[in-house]
Deep mutational scan, measured.
Amino acid sequence: TEYKLVVVGAGGVGKSALTIQLIQNHFVDEYDPTIEDSYRKQVVIDGETCLLDILDTAGQEEYSAMRDQYMRTGEGFLCVFAINNTKSFEDIHQYREQIKRVKDSDDVPMVLVGNKCDLAARTVESRQAQDLARSYGIPYIETSAKTRQGVEDAFYTLVREIRQH
């Protein structure tokens, strides 16, 4: 089974770092803004072998026109913010609204991801993020692309959301 996953969120929150940590098991430290990259990885989730087709997208506003296209083809979405960047957390709402509009559905598989949880300088409390996820009816997972904490959990949870859909 193949799953088309799309990673969305503001610029600099760590979308590529999360994806590369999942696929290649290493942490990319330097920031190089993405336009669009796709990665494929075969994994076993709950005993089922599946192929993850992951689209890593641009957070930069100037590429926002490309969003409709990949939102149409994606089956599930990782909505990523950084726990030390309140603005990126506030941006999640717009991504969710755009996904709902493009998919013409209120019920699209999504996982809210709070990345950079290895950093002490948190400005978005776990509780705020949990409340937001609960209001959307989606899971919330904290990750660190640096330490790998929660990385597999985030992507695998999204696959489970798609399966249950």
Rank of each mutant, 00 (worst) to 15 (best):
R148A: 08
I20E: 03
D53K: 01
I138D: 02
A65G: 14
Q42L: 06
S135Q: 09
L52T: 06
V28P: 06
D37W: 00
Q21P: 00
Q128N: 07
Y70H: 12
Q149P: 08
K146W: 14
E62D: 15
E2K: 03
F81W: 06
T147Q: 11
A133C: 07
Q164R: 11
E125P: 08
Q94V: 13
I138N: 04
A10N: 08
F155K: 00
L5N: 01
I54T: 06
N115C: 15
L22V: 09
Y70D: 15
G114W: 02
E2V: 05
I54Y: 00
L158F: 02
G74L: 05
R101V: 06
V43T: 08
S38H: 01
V7D: 01
A145T: 08
G11N: 14
S16G: 01
Q94I: 09
R122H: 12
Y140L: 06
I23S: 07
A10R: 07
P109G: 03
S38M: 05
D32T: 03
Y63A: 13
K87Q: 12
R148Y: 14
D107S: 12
I138Q: 02
I20L: 05
S126N: 07
Y70F: 14
G47C: 05
C79Y: 15
R96E: 04
T34P: 00
L52V: 14
M71W: 15
T49K: 09
G137D: 09
C79E: 01
T19L: 09
M71D: 13
V7T: 06
V44Y: 10
L52I: 11
F81S: 03
K87P: 11
L5Y: 03
F77D: 01
Y70E: 15
I99F: 07
D53S: 03
R148G: 13
D131I: 08
R72H: 11
R134G: 05
V102N: 08
Y31D: 02
Y136Q: 09
D56V: 01
Y95F: 11
Q94D: 15
Q42T: 08
I83A: 15
L18N: 04
Q130T: 08
R40S: 04
P33L: 02
Y156M: 14
E97G: 05
V8K: 02
C117Y: 07
S88V: 05
I35W: 04
R122E: 13
L112A: 04
H165D: 14
P139H: 07
Y31Q: 02
V8L: 10
D56M: 00
K103V: 09
H93R: 14
Y63K: 09
N84T: 10
G150E: 15
S105K: 12
T86H: 13
D46Y: 06
S64P: 13
Y140Q: 02
E75Y: 12
K116A: 15
K15I: 02
T1Y: 11
Y39R: 00
G74V: 14
D37G: 00
D131Q: 12
Q69A: 12
N84Q: 10
H26K: 04
V44L: 10
A58D: 04
T57Q: 03
E62Q: 15
E75T: 12
V44W: 09
A154S: 05
Q128E: 11
T123F: 07
I23V: 05
D29V: 06
Q24H: 04
A10H: 05
V44S: 10
P33H: 02
V8Y: 11
F77W: 05
Y156C: 13
D153Y: 05
D56G: 01
F155V: 13
Y136N: 06
G11T: 13
K87V: 08
S105F: 10
M110K: 02
G137Y: 03
M110Q: 01
Q69V: 06
Q164N: 07
I83C: 15
D37I: 00
T147A: 10
V102K: 05
A65L: 15
P139S: 06
Q149A: 08
A82F: 00
K103Y: 08
R101A: 10
S16C: 00
G12Y: 12
E48S: 13
I35E: 01
L132S: 05
T73M: 13
D91N: 13
V8H: 05
P109W: 05
R127F: 12
T57D: 01
D56T: 02
D32R: 01
I45R: 05
F77E: 02
G59Q: 03
Q130L: 11
L132E: 05
I92N: 03
G9Y: 00
Q24R: 05
T1R: 11
T157Y: 12
S38Q: 07
V28I: 13
H93G: 12
S135G: 05
L51N: 09
G74I: 14
I20V: 12
V102L: 14
Q94H: 14
G59I: 02
K87N: 11
L5M: 10
D32C: 03
D104G: 14
Y156F: 11
Y3C: 10
G12H: 12
K4G: 08
K103R: 10
V43K: 13
I35R: 02
I141H: 06
I83G: 14
V151G: 11
N85T: 07
V80Q: 04
R163M: 11
R134I: 12
Y3S: 07
L22S: 13
I162E: 02
E161L: 12
V7Y: 02
V13Y: 02
K15M: 00
R148C: 09
E48D: 11
Q24I: 14
K116Y: 14
Y140A: 03
T1C: 10
R101M: 06
E161T: 09
N115H: 15
S105W: 07
V6T: 04
V113K: 02
A65W: 11
E61R: 14
L5R: 00
G114T: 02
E161Y: 09
V8D: 00
A10M: 06
Y140H: 03
A10F: 11
D104M: 10
V159R: 04
Q164M: 06
F89G: 04
D118H: 01
V80K: 00
Q42P: 13
Q69K: 09
E152S: 10
T1A: 10
D107Q: 11
E97Y: 05
F27Q: 02
R40D: 01
R101Y: 06
H165L: 13
I54E: 00
A129M: 11
T19N: 09
D104S: 10
E2R: 02
P33G: 02
I45E: 04
D37F: 00
E36A: 01
V28N: 06
I45A: 11
G14R: 00
R101E: 05
V80W: 01
N85S: 09
E90N: 11
G14M: 00
G9V: 00
E142L: 04
Q24A: 14
N84G: 15
R96F: 14
V43F: 13
S88A: 13
K41C: 09
S64G: 15
E75A: 11
G76Q: 01
T123Q: 10
D107G: 09
Y140W: 04
C117R: 07
Y39F: 07
Y70W: 06
M110W: 06
L158E: 00
K146Q: 15
I23Y: 09
D153K: 09
E48Q: 12
I20Q: 04
Q130D: 06
Q21D: 14
I99N: 02
I23N: 15
L51M: 11
K103C: 12
G47M: 07
P109V: 10
N25K: 14
E161H: 09
K146R: 12
V7Q: 02
Y140C: 06
F81G: 04
A58R: 11
D32H: 02
G11K: 15
Y3K: 11
D107F: 13
I138G: 03
I54A: 04
I35H: 03
Y156Q: 15
E161R: 12
R160Y: 06
K103M: 12
G59N: 01
T19G: 07
C50G: 07
A120F: 08
V6L: 11
K100Q: 12
I162C: 05
T157C: 08
E48F: 05
L55N: 10
A58I: 03
V159G: 03
I20N: 01
A58W: 02
V80I: 11
K87F: 09
L55M: 06
